[in-house]
Computed example of a mutant assay.
Amino acid sequence: MLEIILDEFHPSTMWNGGIFIYISFVLIIYFLLLPPSKNHSLKKSIVFILGLLAIFASLGSPINVIARIMYSSHIIQLVLLFFVAPPLLIYGFKYEIIERWKKNETFAYMLKIVTNPWVALVTFYVLFYSYHIPAVFNSVRLDLFANYFAMIVLFIAAILLFHPLLLNTSLSDKTKWTYALLNILLIVPYSVVLIVADSGIYALYTDVRLFMSSIMVCLPDADLMTPEFFRALMPFDPVMEQLRGGILLLIAQVVIFTTVGFLGRKRK
Rank of each mutant, 00 (worst) to 15 (best):
E3K: 13
M14W: 04
M14E: 13
G17I: 12
G17L: 07
F20K: 04
Y22V: 15
I23K: 00
L27A: 04
I28D: 00
L33G: 02
L34W: 03
P36C: 02
N39K: 15
H40M: 10
G51S: 04
L52E: 02
L59Q: 05
A67E: 07
R68E: 03
R68C: 05
Y71S: 11
H74I: 13
I76F: 15
V79F: 15
L81I: 09
V84R: 10
P86W: 11
L88R: 12
I97A: 14
R100N: 07
K103D: 09
N104M: 08
F107K: 03
N116Q: 04
V126M: 15
L127I: 02
F128I: 00
S130F: 14
H132A: 08
I133H: 13
P134R: 08
F145R: 11
F149H: 04
I152L: 14
F155E: 06
L161K: 07
P164Y: 04
L167N: 13
S172I: 00
S172E: 05
L181N: 01
N183D: 04
I195W: 01
D198H: 14
S199I: 03
I201P: 11
I201D: 04
Y202D: 05
D207K: 08
F211G: 13
M216K: 06
D221F: 10
F230V: 12
M234H: 05
F236D: 12
D237I: 01
E241A: 01
Q242M: 10
I247S: 09
A252V: 10
I256P: 09
F257H: 14
